[in-house]
Design a protein around this nucleic acid. Structure first.
Lengths: 223, 223
DNA sequence: GTATTATTAGAGTATATACTCTAGCAGTCA
DNA sequence: TGACTGCTAGAGTATATACTCTAATAATAC
């Protein structure tokens, strides 16, 4: 593998593991057993590495979020989109953690990320349109669909942070791809009231697959 | 005002303005025209300052989120809770920005924040119970109510980050308390399907007050 | 083989950052 | 007045971090 690619890969690994803020270029070089000079031969600076990683992330999500407009969507489609999105978020989980700082430090990334967000929102909207077309959900008004899509986006992009902050120090157990996918449970919760009667049971069954297994440590003492 | 309080206040200001990561203890001291030594006389380290700020934040939110259990809730209550929560988020907006790092750096804060989150989730749950009791929303199952409350929390705590990242470089215009409160629009969107017919119009009218004024730059090209 | 280019090592640097240390000052209390 | 305590200044430090520079080595072209 080319050194350049190794740098990107190692950086992603370290960033995900320890957070971008805690990973220096020297760490990355040391981890790969190469010299700092070598690293800086391939990348002008740390931001450039991050930007390259973002491009990969973007490509991945854009690839998975191609919504067909020549046909309606199926339950399988919906499941695929949800799984893919959470897979992507998992693989590049460092990214949303320090998002604001990253965007502040790199104007190019800021622009690209903004457009990326918009494309994602459009895709979510299209998914709702496709699901409505298939009779899986009732067709909401344009305005409601937009607000709903935005809520889906907010839930998805905040799920990771919630897991990391709301659960105990037992980081190991709480941070797994399985835990991550329980975000799907939350997203499907948003859809419940809009489900068409014919599909309600199916969607609820799908949702059930992602129900958190834990004895819900939080919310112990409810009224 | 005591120096100690001045330090807390100035820190909060600077943190909100530039982000915790971009504000050093030396900056804070310089901003107050005091010496670093003076600052460190009052606080052992930077984390201690942040922790003190958190305690204030916590106190504020806990104060506003006291949910009466001897009566049902009114529309005014709901509006009050929403406004208060977003006010709090605005006043301490630096906090959620670097949350994960802050919790990683301070075990005490990690613990406290986890309990804080749980209290907030319990409060949101109680609000839903109160609203259902008043006949404003239909009473959902325990399980659904919990999942809904969590979604409300996710939307609320991610709204700021969304504003900051999804909008253009025109930070000034996009980041205002007004903008912030448009998050209420998103939260009320979550409630729509559960509204009791008698209150539907009222809640929708309230929601309308927070509708984003802008020509929705994002989501321009929808199907 | 030789010239040229791409890659790498590794020492080094400028700056920043969190924090320390000593000494002086100011208010208070006897 | 004098001692004591709390507060403050400001120089200073150890460490980290992003990044540079030069020289050497490997790969490739001719």
């Amino acid at each position: 593998m080319k050194t350049r690619d190794k740098i990107i890969l190692a950086s992603l690994e370290l960033f995900n593991e320890r957070g971008e803020r805690n990973v220096t270029t020297n760490h990355i070089a040391a981890h790969l057993a190469i010299s700092p000079g070598n690293l800086y031969y391939h990348f002008r600076n740390k931001s450039d590495i991050i930007y390259e990683i973002f491009l990969e992330y973007e490509k991945l999500v854009d690839y998975y979020l191609q919504i067909p407009d020549d046909r309606d969507l199926t339950m399988e489609d919906m499941k695929f989109y949800l799984e893919s999105v959470f897979d992507g978020l998992w693989s590049y989980r460092f990214f949303h953690r320090d998002l604001e700082f990253l965007l502040d430090s790199d104007e190019r990334l800021r622009q690209d990320y903004r457009e990326f967000t918009n494309r994602c929102l459009v895709a979510i909207n299209r998914i709702f349109v496709g699901l409505a077309g298939a009779g899986i959900i009732q067709s909401p008004s344009d305005e409601l669909r937009r607000a709903m899509s935005l809520n889906v986006w907010l839930v998805i992009t905040n799920w990771m942070a919630f897991l990391k902050t709301a659960h105990g120090t037992e980081m190991d157990s709480s941070l797994s791809i399985t835990r991550m996918k329980q975000g799907i449970y939350q997203v499907l919760t948003l859809e419940i009231p809009y489900l068409a009667p014919d599909f309600r049971d199916q969607v609820m069954a799908l949702r059930e697959q992602y129900r958190p297994d834990l004895p819900d440590t939080h919310l112990g003492e409810l009224p």
